[in-house]
């Protein structure tokens, strides 16, 4: 067993879990934060993306023990109370989702993309979201959402 201590969405957590526990299982099953999704078993879909010390990471491809000591942010941690994060608001306003399965990962991936890169072109946004697969939207409205959020976020 591994004693995993970390900060998740600003709160310190501490649990003893089997060493082979994936970070995504720790988040969904131990912490019961089910906004982070699992969409594949090949590390390709990005539905599980969270931030680990400010970097976007596929939580299905990291052990909880590897993330011990880190600051984790999940989709539940980005809104300010009832006020949506600009990226969430932009997805809402631009119809950037249909079934919503990919959305938490898209939003987390897009936030890091916009925070780290200024003046993103449409092409750069598409390339920046290569790790996130959406089976519904055809991506156009997702790209529009990220463009709108980038404006709002000063990108």
């Amino acid at each position: 067993m591994a004693l995993v201590k970390m900060t998740v969405n600003g709160q310190a957590v501490e649990y003893d879990v089997p060493d082979n526990t994936l970070l995504v299982s720790f988040i969904r099953e131990t912490l019961e934060l089910t906004g982070t999704h699992v969409g594949c078993d090949t590390s390709q879909c990005g539905a599980c993306v969270v931030h680990v010390d400010g970097q976007s990471v596929k939580a299905c491809t990291m052990l909880a023990a590897q993330a011990a000591g880190s600051e984790i942010t999940t989709i539940e941690g980005i809104a300010n109370g009832d006020e949506l994060h600009p990226m969430q608001k932009a997805f809402h306003e631009n119809h950037g989702l249909q079934c919503g399965y990919c959305t938490p990962g898209m939003v987390m991936s897009a936030i890091e993309l916009v925070e780290k890169n200024k003046g993103l072109t449409e092409q750069q946004i598409r390339e920046g979201l290569e790790g996130n697969i959406c089976r519904c939207t055809g991506y156009h409205n997702i790209v529009k959402s990220v463009q709108a959020a980038a404006q709002e976020m000063g990108g």
Binding site: D19, L22, D41, T42, S43, T61, M62, Q66
Partner: peptide
């Protein structure tokens, strides 16, 4: 040895590989 895990963890998850001890190099 466990480095970035981007190859090893997917293969462990799918039980294409197994290991009694993962040694993290970070």
């Amino acid at each position: 040895l466990l480095a970035g895990g981007q190859t090893l963890i997917p293969t462990l998850k799918q039980r294409l590989a197994s290991s009694d001890c993962l040694i993290d190099l970070s």
